[in-house]
Protein backbone atom coordinates (compact mmCIF):
# COMPACT_ATOMS: atom_id res chain seq x y z
CA UNK A 1 0.00 0.00 0.00
CA UNK A 2 1.25 3.45 -0.85
CA UNK A 3 1.45 5.72 2.13
CA UNK A 4 -0.23 8.84 0.77
CA UNK A 5 -0.71 12.33 2.15
CA UNK A 6 -3.58 14.34 0.67
CA UNK A 7 -3.82 18.06 1.32
CA UNK A 8 -7.35 19.40 1.54
CA UNK A 9 -8.90 22.79 1.89
CA UNK A 10 -12.52 23.80 1.52
CA UNK A 11 -12.48 24.49 -2.21
CA UNK A 12 -13.24 22.95 -5.58
CA UNK A 13 -9.66 21.78 -6.17
CA UNK A 14 -9.71 19.80 -2.90
CA UNK A 15 -13.17 18.45 -3.62
CA UNK A 16 -11.89 17.05 -6.91
CA UNK A 17 -8.66 15.81 -5.31
CA UNK A 18 -10.63 13.93 -2.64
CA UNK A 19 -12.88 12.24 -5.15
CA UNK A 20 -9.99 11.43 -7.46
CA UNK A 21 -8.01 9.90 -4.60
CA UNK A 22 -11.01 7.69 -3.79
CA UNK A 23 -11.04 6.66 -7.45
CA UNK A 24 -7.26 6.13 -7.50
CA UNK A 25 -7.56 3.74 -4.57
CA UNK A 26 -9.42 1.30 -6.84
CA UNK A 27 -6.31 1.01 -8.99
CA UNK A 28 -3.55 1.58 -6.47
CA UNK A 29 -4.28 0.52 -2.88
CA UNK A 30 -3.56 3.56 -0.74
CA UNK A 31 -2.88 4.02 2.91
CA UNK A 32 -4.45 7.46 3.00
CA UNK A 33 -3.79 10.32 5.41
CA UNK A 34 -5.34 13.75 4.98
CA UNK A 35 -3.92 17.03 6.12
CA UNK A 36 -4.92 20.66 6.29
CA UNK A 37 -2.97 23.74 7.29
CA UNK A 38 -4.67 26.74 8.89
CA UNK A 39 -2.79 29.86 7.86
CA UNK A 40 -3.83 32.66 10.21
CA UNK A 41 -3.08 36.30 9.39
CA UNK A 42 -0.15 37.75 11.26
CA UNK A 43 -2.57 40.10 13.04
CA UNK A 44 -4.49 37.13 14.39
CA UNK A 45 -1.45 35.53 16.00
CA UNK A 46 -1.41 36.15 19.73
CA UNK A 47 0.70 35.68 22.83
CA UNK A 48 3.30 33.16 23.86
CA UNK A 49 3.37 30.00 25.97
CA UNK A 50 0.00 28.79 27.28
CA UNK A 51 -1.92 31.66 25.65
CA UNK A 52 -0.48 30.85 22.26
CA UNK A 53 -1.04 27.11 22.64
CA UNK A 54 -4.69 27.72 23.56
CA UNK A 55 -5.08 30.02 20.56
CA UNK A 56 -3.43 27.44 18.26
CA UNK A 57 -5.71 24.70 19.60
CA UNK A 58 -8.70 26.89 18.71
CA UNK A 59 -7.42 27.47 15.18
CA UNK A 60 -6.60 23.77 14.73
CA UNK A 61 -10.12 22.83 15.88
CA UNK A 62 -11.57 24.99 13.16
CA UNK A 63 -9.29 23.17 10.67
CA UNK A 64 -10.50 19.81 11.97
CA UNK A 65 -14.12 20.87 11.47
CA UNK A 66 -13.25 21.91 7.90
CA UNK A 67 -11.75 18.48 7.16
CA UNK A 68 -14.77 16.75 8.73
CA UNK A 69 -17.12 18.81 6.56
CA UNK A 70 -15.16 17.99 3.40
CA UNK A 71 -14.97 14.27 4.20
CA UNK A 72 -18.68 14.18 5.03
CA UNK A 73 -19.66 16.07 1.87
CA UNK A 74 -17.49 14.10 -0.51
CA UNK A 75 -17.98 10.76 1.24
CA UNK A 76 -15.11 9.13 -0.64
CA UNK A 77 -14.72 5.42 -1.12
CA UNK A 78 -11.32 5.15 0.59
CA UNK A 79 -10.87 4.66 4.32
CA UNK A 80 -8.42 6.90 6.15
CA UNK A 81 -5.38 5.20 7.64
CA UNK A 82 -5.18 7.66 10.51
CA UNK A 83 -6.71 10.76 12.05
CA UNK A 84 -6.59 13.92 9.90
CA UNK A 85 -3.48 15.98 10.55
CA UNK A 86 -4.18 19.66 11.10
CA UNK A 87 -1.36 22.17 11.43
CA UNK A 88 -1.20 25.88 12.08
CA UNK A 89 1.37 27.94 10.21
CA UNK A 90 2.78 28.34 6.72
CA UNK A 91 1.16 25.81 4.38
CA UNK A 92 4.20 24.69 2.37
CA UNK A 93 6.52 24.55 5.37
CA UNK A 94 4.11 22.48 7.44
CA UNK A 95 3.36 20.05 4.63
CA UNK A 96 7.05 19.59 3.79
CA UNK A 97 7.77 18.94 7.45
CA UNK A 98 5.01 16.32 7.61
CA UNK A 99 6.16 14.68 4.34
CA UNK A 100 9.69 14.34 5.67
CA UNK A 101 8.66 13.08 9.10
CA UNK A 102 5.89 10.77 7.95
CA UNK A 103 7.94 9.10 5.17
CA UNK A 104 5.14 9.16 2.64
CA UNK A 105 5.32 7.49 -0.76
CA UNK A 106 3.07 10.03 -2.44
CA UNK A 107 1.80 13.56 -1.88
CA UNK A 108 -1.52 14.52 -3.48
CA UNK A 109 -2.82 18.05 -3.93
CA UNK A 110 -5.67 19.54 -5.94
CA UNK A 111 -5.11 22.22 -8.56
CA UNK A 112 -7.90 24.04 -10.32
CA UNK A 113 -6.94 23.96 -13.96
CA UNK A 114 -6.44 27.55 -15.11
CA UNK A 115 -6.02 28.97 -18.59
CA UNK A 116 -2.76 30.58 -17.51
CA UNK A 117 0.06 27.98 -17.55
CA UNK A 118 2.20 30.27 -15.38
CA UNK A 119 0.03 29.36 -12.38
CA UNK A 120 0.86 25.71 -12.93
CA UNK A 121 4.54 26.58 -13.20
CA UNK A 122 4.32 28.50 -9.92
CA UNK A 123 2.95 25.37 -8.26
CA UNK A 124 5.42 22.87 -9.65
CA UNK A 125 8.40 25.15 -9.06
CA UNK A 126 7.38 25.77 -5.45
CA UNK A 127 9.44 24.08 -2.71
CA UNK A 128 6.56 21.72 -2.10
CA UNK A 129 7.07 20.14 -5.53
CA UNK A 130 10.76 20.75 -6.17
CA UNK A 131 12.12 19.57 -2.86
CA UNK A 132 9.75 17.02 -1.51
CA UNK A 133 10.55 13.69 0.01
CA UNK A 134 7.98 12.04 -2.24
CA UNK A 135 6.52 12.41 -5.74
CA UNK A 136 3.59 14.80 -6.16
CA UNK A 137 0.28 14.02 -7.79
CA UNK A 138 -1.34 17.26 -8.97
CA UNK A 139 -5.04 16.46 -9.32
CA UNK A 140 -6.52 18.66 -11.99
CA UNK A 141 -9.66 16.81 -12.88
CA UNK A 142 -11.82 13.89 -12.04
CA UNK A 143 -10.90 11.80 -15.06
CA UNK A 144 -12.61 8.48 -14.57
CA UNK A 145 -10.37 6.66 -17.00
CA UNK A 146 -8.76 3.26 -16.62
CA UNK A 147 -5.61 4.36 -18.42
CA UNK A 148 -2.49 6.22 -17.40
CA UNK A 149 0.37 7.49 -19.54
CA UNK A 150 4.06 8.11 -19.20
CA UNK A 151 4.96 11.37 -20.93
CA UNK A 152 8.30 11.09 -22.71
CA UNK A 153 10.24 13.70 -24.60
CA UNK A 154 13.81 14.27 -25.70
CA UNK A 155 14.43 16.17 -22.45
CA UNK A 156 13.24 13.29 -20.25
CA UNK A 157 15.66 10.79 -18.71
CA UNK A 158 13.97 7.42 -19.47
CA UNK A 159 15.54 5.72 -16.48
CA UNK A 160 14.26 8.26 -13.97
CA UNK A 161 10.84 8.37 -15.60
CA UNK A 162 10.33 4.62 -15.66
CA UNK A 163 11.94 3.77 -12.33
CA UNK A 164 10.25 6.49 -10.32
CA UNK A 165 6.88 6.20 -12.04
CA UNK A 166 6.78 2.46 -11.44
CA UNK A 167 7.38 3.05 -7.72
CA UNK A 168 3.88 4.54 -7.77
CA UNK A 169 2.20 2.88 -10.75
CA UNK A 170 4.09 -0.42 -10.92
CA UNK A 171 1.50 -2.48 -9.04
CA UNK A 172 -1.50 -0.52 -10.25
CA UNK A 173 -4.20 -1.99 -12.43
CA UNK A 174 -4.19 0.99 -14.78
CA UNK A 175 -3.56 0.24 -18.44
CA UNK A 176 -0.29 1.96 -19.24
CA UNK A 177 0.48 3.91 -22.42
CA UNK A 178 3.51 5.86 -23.53
CA UNK A 179 3.03 9.29 -25.09
CA UNK A 180 6.10 10.82 -26.68
CA UNK A 181 5.84 14.59 -27.16
CA UNK A 182 7.60 16.49 -29.90
CA UNK A 183 6.94 20.19 -30.22
CA UNK A 184 5.72 21.53 -33.53
CA UNK A 185 3.86 24.81 -34.03
CA UNK A 186 1.04 23.72 -36.27
CA UNK A 187 -2.74 24.03 -36.57
CA UNK A 188 -3.18 20.30 -36.31
CA UNK A 189 -1.47 17.73 -34.13
CA UNK A 190 0.15 14.82 -35.98
CA UNK A 191 0.73 11.22 -34.96
CA UNK A 192 4.20 10.19 -36.10
CA UNK A 193 5.87 6.83 -36.63
CA UNK A 194 7.40 5.28 -33.52
CA UNK A 195 10.90 5.72 -34.98
CA UNK A 196 10.43 9.47 -34.58
CA UNK A 197 10.62 8.95 -30.82
CA UNK A 198 14.31 8.10 -31.19
CA UNK A 199 16.53 6.47 -28.60
CA UNK A 200 14.67 7.93 -25.60
CA UNK A 201 11.48 6.20 -26.63
CA UNK A 202 13.28 2.93 -27.40
CA UNK A 203 14.96 3.04 -24.01
CA UNK A 204 11.69 3.80 -22.20
CA UNK A 205 9.98 0.87 -23.90
CA UNK A 206 12.90 -1.44 -23.06
CA UNK A 207 12.96 -0.37 -19.41
CA UNK A 208 9.24 -1.00 -19.05
CA UNK A 209 9.58 -4.40 -20.71
CA UNK A 210 12.45 -5.26 -18.33
CA UNK A 211 10.22 -4.31 -15.42
CA UNK A 212 7.56 -6.69 -16.75
CA UNK A 213 5.12 -3.90 -17.50
CA UNK A 214 2.83 -4.24 -20.50
CA UNK A 215 2.42 -1.10 -22.57
CA UNK A 216 -0.93 -0.98 -24.33
CA UNK A 217 -0.30 1.91 -26.70
CA UNK A 218 2.69 3.97 -27.67
CA UNK A 219 2.03 7.23 -29.49
CA UNK A 220 4.46 9.79 -30.84
CA UNK A 221 2.73 13.14 -31.09
CA UNK A 222 3.93 16.26 -32.83
CA UNK A 223 2.06 19.43 -31.95
CA UNK A 224 1.68 22.33 -29.56
CA UNK A 225 1.43 21.93 -25.76
CA UNK A 226 -2.28 22.88 -25.99
CA UNK A 227 -3.00 20.16 -28.55
CA UNK A 228 -1.08 17.44 -26.72
CA UNK A 229 -2.48 18.61 -23.36
CA UNK A 230 -5.98 18.16 -24.76
CA UNK A 231 -5.06 14.72 -26.15
CA UNK A 232 -4.12 13.65 -22.61
CA UNK A 233 -7.68 14.19 -21.33
CA UNK A 234 -8.51 10.54 -21.88
CA UNK A 235 -6.06 9.46 -19.18
CA UNK A 236 -6.71 9.30 -15.46
CA UNK A 237 -3.20 10.60 -14.91
CA UNK A 238 -0.01 11.37 -16.77
CA UNK A 239 3.38 10.66 -15.20
CA UNK A 240 6.34 12.86 -16.02
CA UNK A 241 9.66 13.87 -14.58
CA UNK A 242 9.49 17.29 -12.93
CA UNK A 243 10.29 19.96 -15.53
CA UNK A 244 12.99 22.23 -14.18
CA UNK A 245 12.19 25.17 -16.44
CA UNK A 246 9.43 26.63 -18.59
CA UNK A 247 9.93 24.09 -21.35
CA UNK A 248 7.37 22.98 -23.92
CA UNK A 249 6.92 19.82 -21.84
CA UNK A 250 6.10 21.99 -18.81
CA UNK A 251 3.46 23.80 -20.88
CA UNK A 252 2.09 20.45 -22.08
CA UNK A 253 1.65 19.35 -18.47
CA UNK A 254 0.10 22.73 -17.66
CA UNK A 255 -2.44 22.30 -20.46
CA UNK A 256 -3.08 18.65 -19.62
CA UNK A 257 -6.66 18.08 -18.54
CA UNK A 258 -5.57 14.87 -16.86
CA UNK A 259 -3.93 14.87 -13.44
CA UNK A 260 -0.13 15.00 -13.41
CA UNK A 261 2.18 12.73 -11.43
CA UNK A 262 5.54 14.46 -11.03
CA UNK A 263 8.40 12.13 -10.23
CA UNK A 264 11.86 13.14 -9.07
CA UNK A 265 15.34 11.92 -9.61
CA UNK A 266 16.16 11.46 -5.97
CA UNK A 267 14.31 11.10 -2.77
CA UNK A 268 15.42 13.71 -0.29
CA UNK A 269 16.76 12.50 2.98
Amino acid sequence: MLKTLLYINEDLASSIALRFTGYLNKFIPLSLFVTHVEEPDEKEQVGTGWVRRTWEDGVASSGKRLIDRMLRTENIDCPLAGRPKVFVGDRDTEIMYELQNGVYDLFVTGYLDAADPEQFYDLISSPLCTNPSSPTLVVKNLSLSKKCALLCADSVDPEVLVKKSLEILGDSTFEMDIVFFKFMDSDKMKVLDLEEGGKHLTETMALLADAGKTVHNTTVLSGTPEQVGDFLKDYALVASTLPSRKSMRMYTLAYSLASVLLVHEKKQD
Binding site: L12, L112, D113, A114, A115, D116, L142, S143, K233, L257
Partner: peptide
Protein backbone atom coordinates in the same frame (compact mmCIF):
# COMPACT_ATOMS: atom_id res chain seq x y z
CA UNK B 1 -17.86 30.32 -8.88
CA UNK B 2 -16.17 27.30 -7.34
CA UNK B 3 -19.40 26.54 -5.47
CA UNK B 4 -21.31 26.57 -8.77
CA UNK B 5 -18.66 24.39 -10.36
CA UNK B 6 -18.86 21.89 -7.50
CA UNK B 7 -22.65 21.77 -7.95
CA UNK B 8 -22.30 21.13 -11.66
CA UNK B 9 -19.54 18.57 -11.26
CA UNK B 10 -21.56 16.69 -8.65
CA UNK B 11 -24.69 16.81 -10.83
CA UNK B 12 -22.92 15.44 -13.89
CA UNK B 13 -20.80 12.88 -12.03
CA UNK B 14 -23.97 11.43 -10.51
CA UNK B 15 -25.28 11.01 -14.05
CA UNK B 16 -21.99 9.45 -15.14
CA UNK B 17 -21.22 12.30 -17.47
CA UNK B 18 -17.49 12.72 -17.91
CA UNK B 19 -16.72 16.33 -16.99
CA UNK B 20 -13.49 18.32 -16.77
CA UNK B 21 -13.22 21.64 -15.00
CA UNK B 22 -11.22 24.76 -15.81
CA UNK B 23 -11.11 28.28 -14.39
CA UNK B 24 -10.34 31.28 -16.58
CA UNK B 25 -10.06 35.03 -16.03
CA UNK B 26 -12.74 37.29 -17.43
CA UNK B 27 -10.27 39.09 -19.70
CA UNK B 28 -9.53 35.81 -21.49
Amino acid sequence: IEKRMVELLTYYNEREVHAWVKLINSEN
